[in-house]
């Protein structure tokens, strides 16, 4: 069960992130979570929003390079050791994390972790075996 996220190419200069945020805001798109990976020259912005298709369209209209990519979102209790309990079985299976980011759900005292693994399908299998709750696109939009 993979979820979709938006990946946006950004130059590493002032105001770029703000512009993306403004375009999304102006179009009534709500950002659920985001992370920014950067180098001295450029950055890759990854976003989970409530309407991927629309977000992609409005950003494309403003001439951004945007891709919809797949990641896995899991829900864990917001407590010490929560992340480790997810990662240990995966590393035992030789699955690597390419990147990850996390946010806390306001209402449920749960944390949502978003992962990109080198092998997504195998990761899902391992997570299921360990009874980790994997979120669907619908679920994540409703958070």
């Amino acid at each position: 069960m993979k979820v979709e996220q938006l990946s946006v190419f950004l130059e590493n200069k002032a105001g770029r992130l703000a512009e993306v945020a403004k375009i999304l805001g102006d179009n009534g798109i709500n950002i659920r979570a985001l992370s920014l990976a950067d180098t001295t020259d450029f950055g890759i912005l990854r976003l989970i929003v409530n309407d991927n298709e629309k977000a992609k369209e409005v950003l494309k209209d403003e001439r951004f390079t945007v891709k919809i990519t797949e990641v896995i979102a899991v829900e864990v209790d917001d407590r010490p050791g929560g992340l480790a309990s997810i990662l240990l079985p995966l590393s035992e299976e030789g699955i690597n994390v390419e990147y990850m980011y996390a946010f806390v759900e306001k209402s449920k005292n749960k944390a949502v972790l978003v992962f990109k693994f080198d092998d997504l399908d195998k990761a899902i299998e391992v997570l299921r075996k360990n009874n980790v709750k994997i979120l669907t696109n619908e679920e994540i939009k409703q958070l």
Partner: peptide, 16 residues
Amino acid sequence: VEAEDAIFFDSMRKQK
């Protein structure tokens, strides 16, 4: 070079 779809990657390693 314009970061167009074909040469833009979500993964930093692949991008580099």
